[in-house]
Amino acid sequence: MSSPESAGARERPWHELVHHALKSSRVKLVTHVPDRVLAPLIASLSADDFFTVVSPAREEEAVGICTGAWMGGTLGAVLMQTSGMGTLANALASLVVPYQIPLLMIVSERGTLGEYNLGQVMVCRTMRPILDSLGIEHHTLARADEVGFVFERAIQQAVSTQSPVAFILSPLLTGGKVFRH
């Protein structure tokens, strides 16, 4: 278990910290619909034999796959962009929450802190209200030194309480996507 002050956390890139936390939490299945910011994380998870990586066409599919895998004994995570979360209200409300699935959602936050696309800004505004309206716990990660602790503790809690959880990766953590003139 990492502590907030784990040595070296500040020097390691965020995606290495997330990779490590998923592995130490025995999250063996990773599903994703890509996002520019998530690219290095997707690449490193895909290169690690520990993980089974599936890349479906839609985020809803990823939710279904992780739900089935969980019931079959394998914990899985969905990696997506904010806009992907915007497509998930029905799957979360009619599958994940009522069936008590510890679904792990890792969301690269677009639409804030320098966003240049109004559509991304608007969908970002729906994200936390959707999660809050369903009572789904979410953590916004802004600091590298908190990644290990938040991921490991929240994953443990999700499994123990059979509840989904969302990790929102702020541009403060990842650098985000910047518009270059």
């Binding site: 299945l29 089974t52 599936v54 479906p56 809803e60 599919e61 990823a62 939710v63 279904g64 796959i65 992780c66 739900t67 089935g68 895998a69 969980w70 019931m71 079959g72 004994g73 394998t74 899985g76």
Partner: peptide, 11 residues
């Protein structure tokens, strides 16, 4: 079908 795929991957 996605749920069935997940079960098939896990088992």
């Amino acid at each position: 079908c996605p749920i069935a795929l997940g079960v098939a991957i896990a088992q």
